[in-house]
Amino acid sequence: MLTRKLLSACLGAGLVAALAVSASAADITGAGSTFVYPVLSKWSADYNKQTGDKLNYQSIGSGGGIAQIKAATVDFGASDKPLEPKELSDGGFGQFPVVVGGIVPVINVKGIKSGELKLSGKVLADIYLGNVTKWNDKAIADLNPGLKLPDSQIAVVHRSDGSGTSFNWTNYFSKVNDDWKTKVGEGTAVNWPVGIGGKGNEGVAAYVTRVKDSIGYVEYAYALQNKLPYVLVQNAAGKYPKPNAESFAAAAASAEWGKAQDFYLIMTNAPGDNAWPVTATTWAIMYKEPKDASRSKAAFAFFKWALENGQKEASALDYVPLPESLVKQIEDYWTASFKG
């Protein structure tokens, strides 16, 4: 074990050295959220083909991304959890959303097909609190008249690693269930009252596939890839939209971005009729007055290209492009807040 660790450390050091050589001064550098990594790498390849500029993004996690931008070792940090406006102004940062995605509850219950089961946010949170423990609990039965529910224990699956997915999931619970808000709260990692933890989206998907009568939550793309049956969740308007690109976009459009300072707005429980209730975004965080204005400028050029031209790639990877109204607001924010 020790030798293997040493070996991998040596290899790692070699790789870093190789990267340092290949990364020329003009490369845009970024670090942070793993959630955006697939779309950023796709964008980066296309952008490189069109302009010759390279993006070097390291998906080390949102916490790491914030730490890196604070240390000014990268041109932008990416985080699934926005920084509060005060923290932004203290550090001289600005932030803006990059891409939208949906988080969906998935189940493995014999006899219940995808989209058949309906849950309200409150009941969903009660399941994760351990207040609702059986599939035929009255709270679930009342929402699903006519659906045959088994008399079995609910096996709850959550993320074991700190994650922006968990942050949005628990943030949603805090908005719709007071019990959750006081007992557990929101965060990239929380003290889960019940359930088992899977590592990463793939870990949760694997557990839900394997464990009978289980419920978990994954990014939409993982639910599709693993063909896991999803649950419909009642949104703030009282409707049950299907989780797909349209309902994620509806959530992004109906969120009141105009009123949010520095785009400090978490999209969960968005008000629109067709809005998927657990929609998430990732923010890019950059210095307002960067030491090296030309590097920052290159990063803005990349994000402008991505927001305006990168939408098709985002859709192909099951993300949702930002609605046009939001793109306009972001570009106004750039000119108003950032130098260079």
């Binding site: 080390i60 914030i66 959890k81 074991s160 690693d161 700190g162 590592k199």
Partner: peptide, 18 residues
């Protein structure tokens, strides 16, 4: 029953320990 171990906890939570 499921549980946790020191090494697993560190591997799981280090990246997002904010």
């Amino acid at each position: 029953e499921p549980g946790n171990s020191i090494a697993a906890a560190i591997a799981n939570e280090f990246t997002e320990a904010d």
